[in-house]
Design a protein around this nucleic acid. Structure first.
Lengths: 108, 108
DNA sequence: TCGTTTCCTCTATATTGTAGAAGTAATGAG
DNA sequence: CTCATTACTTCTACAATATAGAGGAAACGA
């Protein structure tokens, strides 16, 4: 594999959000999911920039949705994680787990 | 707190290594610990640069050790994690945990 | 003293992270 | 049917992290 073979911290979080959201993952929901779960503010620009990078690495793919019948309901760009994306998450989590194994931490 | 209040991926790994190593943490052992546990190659420059950054954030402190009676046994620079460093690890792990909770992943 | 070893510092660059303004496509009000 | 408004995405610019490896410094042993 070329370059790093593990994820940056935010890349990791973004991919986890995609896994959680499944079909309904697009810019806005990804942002929401992260903000709600982690209590951390996320700029929308950060979300898209990261998704873009992940796509160029092949960890994510996107497709255009149809417009929805609601005020401002323009078509969304839906994202989903790929097989190699899952593998990358997997490797990252594994490494982290190896490093934490047996360690006593306040929140595990 | 100023700036990001969570850790970059490698910063995270490095702090976990410090926690594991305790008293015997210095450049070389930190590198070893990570390489052995994660199967990932780590350049020594990366280790020091990161420790340096962590120290400037107050997450780590360092002290000079004494020379040891062995070939090339010059004095080492020992590192240890601080209270706020532990808190940072804690926050990062917590966020990650929130994101993975309930998710079915190969390596969990 | 000098060669060898162990460790650390420095320099330079690539990759990620971050914010927010600006742009685009849709709806609904009037 | 035009326009204000809404939902969403793209762009741009910059800051912070990650990474490699050459080179320098301090110690020992011969």
């Amino acid at each position: 594999m070329s370059g790093r073979d593990y994820l940056g911290e935010f890349e990791h979080i973004i991919l986890l959000a995609l896994l959680r959201l499944g079909e309904r993952a697009y810019g806005v929901t990804v942002r929401q999911e992260i903000e709600q779960r982690t209590q951390r503010e996320v700029s929308i620009g950060a979300v898209y920039a990261t998704l873009e990078r992940l796509e160029s690495k092949g960890y994510v793919r996107s497709r255009r949705g149809d417009p929805t019948p609601e005020r401002g309901g323009r078509s969304k760009r839906f994202f989903h994680i790929t097989g190699t994306g899952v593998e990358a998450v997997d490797r990252t989590q594994h490494a982290l787990r190896q490093m934490t194994e047996g360690l006593r931490l306040a929140r595990g």
